[in-house]
């Protein structure tokens, strides 16, 4: 059924932080936009990639931000930026990220999630909080044939086992 190749690689290392607005999400989005020189909105299920930075919608007024490790910790930078205007939580050890590439990437993931992964409906720039099998996951359409999957660290090995299990015919 899935006769096209899928390449799965681990992404990382990544420095990850979550930002959650206390008040109006639009204000927090505007602060983030200014800081990163991007257009970030409170619109749900949207993701923005710029260079090694990825900003993913992570719930109402909430964003998961990932970048390559730098001299300073991302959560510290953001905490300084927002002060008492938003909650910043360090997620740098909390998530494992995998990249699925190839024609069959969407088919493989469709065995585990009920969301619509057809290219026209989950196009680059879309992200979704869902479950793959029985594991919570954040999916991000990076390119037409590239989807990133973030799972909680404690489920990372179980997720690989699920991928490896006779759940998916190849």
């Amino acid at each position: 059924m899935i006769d096209t190749p899928v390449r799965i690689t681990a992404r990382g290392p990544l420095d990850i932080a979550q930002v959650a607005a206390f008040g109006d999400p639009a204000q927090t989005a505007a602060r983030l936009s200014k800081h990163f020189r991007l257009t970030i909105t409170p619109a749900p299920n949207r993701a923005i990639v710029a260079g090694d930075l990825t900003v993913l919608w992570h719930g109402p007024g909430q964003w998961l931000i990932a970048r390559a490790p730098a001299a300073t910790q991302l959560a510290d930078d953001l905490a300084e930026l927002f002060g008492e205007d938003a909650a910043v939580v360090d997620f740098s050890h909390a998530r494992a990220a995998l990249r699925f590439e190839g024609d069959g990437a969407r088919d493989v993931l469709a065995t585990g999630t009920s969301i619509d992964l057809r290219p026209a409906h989950f196009s680059p720039g879309a992200c979704a909080l869902t479950a793959l099998g029985k594991i919570d996951a954040l999916l991000h359409a990076v390119a037409p044939e590239t989807i990133d999957v973030y799972v909680a660290r404690s489920y990372a090995q179980a997720f690989v086992e699920w991928l490896d299990a006779p759940v998916i015919s190849s």
Binding site: Q18, F22, A87, D90, S92, A152
Partner: peptide
């Protein structure tokens, strides 16, 4: 209430 909660079970 201006409060946010987040699970950090996996972070630590």
């Amino acid at each position: 209430l201006k409060v946010r909660v987040a699970s950090v079970t996996d972070q630590y």
